[in-house]
Design a protein around this nucleic acid. Structure first.
Lengths: 207, 207
DNA sequence: CGATGACTTGAACGCCATCAATCGCTGTGG
DNA sequence: CCACAGCGATTGATGGCGTTCAAGTCATCG
């Protein structure tokens, strides 16, 4: 979609590369650019003063992030792995927006998609138990990055934990339990290469 | 803001009244109308199959709700008390939206405000303990409906609990604790009439 | 090899949920 | 006017789920 924006509007754009763990932008920083993941993965998070962290979303290839309506970023974004992004100057969008209603429509759609995801995540964080959370996570990722039924998770157990609002040990225990139940298996001991064997079983846990 | 929309665009609109506990619209129903609270209060929630409930937002006078980009509502909305709403047919907006970029901008702003609230709530649900949650709730409501320093909460302890992702007893205990600490007091035994005595104390608990 | 970091697994604790009793206010009917 | 049912809220007791602390495993890399 950003590509569409870019091509439609001839806004100034470029590519940027980030290595593992690098900050792309920080919370409350001026939102001068918006981003699209070309390759790699990004996490967006908020922090409490004592370091507790809540990851709001993972951004995978194709996803747009850093799109704010206000002037400042509301999350900190970091590359989880070696990541390439497409970057668009925000200002260059603003002129276009004033004259092109279809463009604003696109922004609105993107924002609404965002909203929908976050609303569902709120239900998970407020009301689901740990197994349901991990099952929901697996199904989400399964839908988003399964290449030939093998998921190559870019994020650590800690990242998953901070996304799901639980301790990292809890994530680990749930995954082991799912393996015992035959819902999934790890690809020859690679702890981030997961094959889903029984999506229905996970879905039953989740709903 | 809806008023602005209405007056700007001469879209068809009307008023509706709902009594305590009535459903205004249900999740997954066609989103034919959008609403603004004139008087009263509304809660929006999602349900899990076994009845666990997560309230996503409380809508107070002036607030707009039920604004969807897709064709279906993503929450169920119910009147918490006797409530009057201003209603606008969604279709009548759509024509306007195509021609008037400022109008789409307004919708985008509203959606973004929504998003911001939900993002902050995600941090609360994922990472805050029970006292922090209740403190945050009190401060939010204090900012939104304090008339002369007295809050008249329209919602029950159960509603608050389902908003904060805790048990209703936990809400009750936290409020009692805050009272003991001198952070608040109840107006002559009215359990929903709260006076905040030490907002700074609550804020310290929250951050 | 030894060191480091990610992950798993075990044990114990603690926060909060659950269950249950009680209080207090409201409204209804005798 | 009082008795009583009904509902929301508070408070207490108990238990469980998930956190925390700690040890151990495994892969990677110097």
């Amino acid at each position: 979609m950003l590509r569409t924006l870019v091509s439609q509007s001839k806004v100034s754009s470029g590519e940027f590369k980030y290595s593992l763990g690098t900050e792309i932008f920080g919370q409350a920083e001026p939102a001068d650019y918006i981003y699209q993941v070309i390759e790699g993965a990004v996490r967006s998070h908020k922090l409490l003063s004592d370091g507790r962290r809540q990851i709001g979303a993972f951004h995978l290839p194709g996803d747009i992030f850093g799109l704010e309506n206000g002037d400042f970023h509301r999350f900190t974004a970091e590359a989880i792995v070696k990541t390439t992004t497409c970057v668009v100057k925000r200002q260059s969008l603003e002129g276009v927006v004033k004259t092109d209603p279809a463009m604003v429509q696109s922004l609105l759609t993107m924002t609404t998609d965002n909203l929908q995801h976050v609303e569902n995540h709120m239900l998970l964080l407020g009301r689901k138990n740990s197994q349901e959370r991990v099952a929901a996570f697996l199904l989400e990722m399964h839908g988003r990055l399964a290449a030939a039924d093998v998921m190559a998770l870019p994020m650590s157990r800690r990242d998953i934990a901070d996304y799901l609002g639980v301790a990292l040990e809890t994530v680990s225990r749930a995954l082991s339990e799912f393996q015992r139940k035959g819902y999934l298996r790890f690809l020859n001991g690679m702890q981030r290469q997961i094959v889903i064997l029984n999506a229905a079983g996970l879905a039953e846990l989740d709903r």
